[in-house]
Amino acid sequence: MLTVQQIGVGGERFDGVREIAVLRGGGLGDLMFALPAIEALAAAYPDARVTLLGTPAGQAVLQGRTDAVHAFEDLPVAPGVRESGDGAPSEQDFFERLHGRFDLAVQVHGGGRNSNPFLLRLGARHTVGTATEDAEVLERWVRYVYYQHEVVRALEVASLAGAEPVTLDPRVRVTASERAAVRERLGVAGRLVAVHPGATDPRRRWSPDRFAAVVRARLEAGDAVVLVGDATDVPASDAIIAAVPSELRAGLHDLTGSLPLPELPAVLAAADVMVGDDSGPRHLAVAVGTPTVGVFWFGNVVNAGPFDRGRHRVHLSYVTRCPVCGIDVTQVGWTAERCEHDPSYVDEVEPDLVLADVEDLLRHA
């Protein structure tokens, strides 16, 4: 019988665990990185109910699309845990409702300086998580070192509670009928390429003219292209559309800023290939099973790159110093100095290289 070892030092399973809380706020990509650890916990404690403590995006994307999360709780606005959010509960309400409910509380939300004291206020019988050198530690903990893949980091935390990995890639369920409905709504009969021209950090953004070169080439080849993203990505999508000749625009579908988040998994799953930066939608595309071509700053590949190269291709930019002021940008993390400049660190990646991988993946779609 094949068994999967725990990652890291591990630990024994706790007894009598019926309620588990997993703390993971942040963006869509952060949530995807935590999913394999959540699946490991659900498998290790099959009789327990797993509650995700996160933002509304978690429920929007995962409701009905995973069996590993059974309940959702919105986080209050609190420093280092959740920075903003309309309709967020107050801290008093949050802790009054949830204090003492959980047998096990799991912190996979950063280095623990803010998230560990927050987690401890839940009053769980057992706690596991990471800790920087200046963070309060939990019952079982592992040192937070910035350069570690986020999926593996979260799995190492889950192993502290005796949970073995069951998957490395996040998994978000989308049905065949959902995929078919997206393609019918867009009027796509052939191949479909999804493009997300954005990232939370502007330094991770490939410029719109480079995305436009990829979009034009795929439209000229007869493929359909769908642009996705939130309201912050509208300027980039507008620039891409403006660079596409009018005679090709019939095959270009712009859903940027208008697609409800619960519908994003199905749109990405309907695509044959997804092209994007190191961003939440690209990580979600991995989770729904769509091949991807990603443009990454090389340091982020350590923390966020896809694991395989059969389905997921990565193009790296090797910028080590800010193009404006020359400061060393490889020493990133919670203590590193950051300059005020936000140029693209990834524009040295050429569109022809990205296109070659898109074409290769489409040949095998």
Rank of each mutant, 00 (worst) to 15 (best):
L119T: 01
E348Y: 01
T290R: 13
T175C: 02
A270W: 14
R143H: 08
G280W: 13
G27D: 01
Q331F: 09
D134V: 10
N300R: 15
V275C: 13
V81M: 00
D278Q: 11
R205G: 12
V329G: 09
A213R: 12
D233M: 11
R205K: 15
L53Y: 01
L355F: 05
T320V: 09
V319K: 15
L168V: 01
R363V: 15
G162D: 02
D342K: 13
V17E: 02
I327S: 10
L316R: 06
V188H: 11
A221N: 11
F33E: 02
A180Q: 12
L138Y: 04
V288R: 09
G27E: 01
A48S: 08
Q107A: 04
S237W: 08
G229C: 13
L122F: 07
T290K: 09
I20P: 00
P265W: 15
G229A: 10
Y318H: 14
S237R: 11
Y318T: 14
L186A: 01
P79I: 14
G87C: 02
C325G: 13
H315S: 10
E96A: 14
A239E: 13
R282D: 01
R65I: 09
A21Y: 14
P117D: 07
E91W: 03
R210Q: 14
L2Y: 00
T335L: 14
S159V: 05
T256C: 13
F33M: 04
P281A: 11
Q59Y: 04
E164D: 03
Q92I: 15
A88M: 03
A285E: 12
R101A: 00
A78Q: 00
T232F: 15
V172S: 05
E178M: 07
R203S: 11
E156F: 07
T51V: 06
F33N: 04
A161K: 08
P79F: 06
E91P: 08
N116Q: 05
Q92A: 08
A231E: 11
A124T: 10
D93I: 02
H99V: 10
P56G: 03
S115L: 09
R204N: 15
G85N: 01
T127G: 05
D67L: 10
V225C: 04
V77G: 00
V354T: 11
P262G: 10
R249A: 11
G16S: 04
S177P: 00
P89E: 00
D30H: 04
E96S: 12
L168P: 00
G294Y: 13
V145N: 04
G276D: 03
A242L: 15
F102V: 02
V4Q: 13
H364S: 13
L35Q: 03
P281N: 07
V151H: 07
D103L: 13
P306S: 07
L155M: 10
Q107W: 11
A71C: 06
E139C: 07
E96R: 15
G16N: 07
P165M: 12
T66K: 09
D223N: 09
R125L: 06
E337I: 06
E263S: 09
P235Q: 12
L353Y: 01
G29M: 00
G326E: 05
T127V: 12
L155F: 06
E96T: 15
R153N: 02
A68M: 01
I20D: 00
A194W: 05
